[in-house]
Structures are given as C-alpha cells and as structure tokens.
Simulated assay, not measured.
Amino acid sequence: MRAATADRERTVDVLKAAFAEGRLSAAEYGERFEAASTAQTYGQLARLVADLPAGPMVAPQMTVAQAGPVLVPVPPTFLAPPPQRRTNAVAVTSLVLGLLCVPTGGLLGVPAVITGHIGRRQTAERNEEGDGMAVTGLVFGWLSIAFWATIMLTVAVFG
C-alpha cells in the first residue's frame, strides 16, 4: 500500500528517537532518513524501523505517560475479500424454465414453479445467491399456469 507524507514523517520521528538514544550512528541515520524520504510503500517504511524498538526505552522511575507518545508507522491491515457466494443451480434452472414458458406456450410452467420453490429453499439453507432468479421463475411459472387455467375455464364454460 502506498505511504503518505505523514507516514514518512512518523518513520523519520522514530529514526530521530533511535539516533538520539544512540541506537543509530550518524551515517546510518542519514542513510535511513534518505530512504524514508523517498519510500513509496508501507513495506519500505517498516523495513527501515524493523530492528528498532517501538519507542524510547522507559526508565524504571518513569511511567509510560511520562515517556510520551510512541510514533511508529502502522502498516495497514489487509483483509481478504469475503468469499463469493455460489449461485444455486436449481434457481438458475427455475429462471430458464420460467423464461421458456413464453415461447413454449406455458408448457414449462409447472416445472418452473417446482424448481423455483426448491431453489428458494436451497438458497436460504445454503446461503447461496439466486433467490431473485428463483422468484422470477416462480412468477413466470405461476403466470403461465394461471393463463392455461383461464383458457381451460373459458373453454369449459363457453365451449
């Protein structure tokens, strides 16, 4: 991750404290100061102070509050992205069957409804994606069943 100017300044402060305590020679301080000034990433800054204590050594008679704040560059925490949830295959099947109800004249309505209900249950149980696809398959399936039921009822009454 790229370092900001404030991060480089904190690293220089740690180097100054180490030099003042005698932990670094003048030449070593100069080299590390130059490297800190041109560092581009947190990793480069962290390497410059990795062998130094986090802050000034606190004498036994001093408390931590008297020693002052410790200025150490804190590298960012890299969290892995959450795993991508799988898409339920039965929900996808329901969507496809539901959409195919239109060109097939509603013949796939019942399978679309059945797979839609199964897909919704599985997406909830398995924490998978695809609930919207299952619902779409259900809607198209029920619409085609309602269409055919209306046609049959009309034929029976007027036929």
Score class of each variant (00 low, 15 high):
34 E>P: 01
5 T>E: 14
26 A>F: 10
56 P>N: 13
40 Q>D: 12
137 G>R: 01
158 F>N: 06
94 S>L: 02
30 G>T: 11
11 T>M: 05
5 T>G: 09
145 I>V: 15
75 P>Y: 02
141 G>R: 06
54 A>M: 08
53 P>T: 03
12 V>L: 15
1 M>Q: 13
128 E>R: 04
85 R>S: 11
141 G>D: 03
64 V>P: 10
7 D>L: 04
43 G>L: 01
111 P>E: 03
146 A>I: 12
120 R>Y: 08
74 V>L: 11
64 V>D: 15
95 L>Y: 09
136 T>D: 14
75 P>M: 09
80 A>C: 02
1 M>W: 04
159 G>P: 11
46 A>L: 07
45 L>M: 00
6 A>V: 14
106 G>E: 04
113 V>N: 00
24 L>M: 04
148 W>I: 08
52 L>I: 10
23 R>E: 13
146 A>T: 08
68 G>S: 03
4 A>M: 09
72 V>T: 14
44 Q>N: 03
15 L>T: 04
20 A>Y: 03
65 A>I: 07
79 L>G: 09
126 R>S: 09
143 L>T: 10
81 P>E: 13
101 C>F: 02
92 V>W: 01
136 T>I: 10
79 L>N: 11
113 V>C: 11
49 V>T: 13
73 P>H: 05
93 T>K: 02
89 A>K: 08
132 G>F: 00
67 A>G: 10
78 F>M: 12
138 L>G: 10
119 G>V: 02
146 A>E: 06
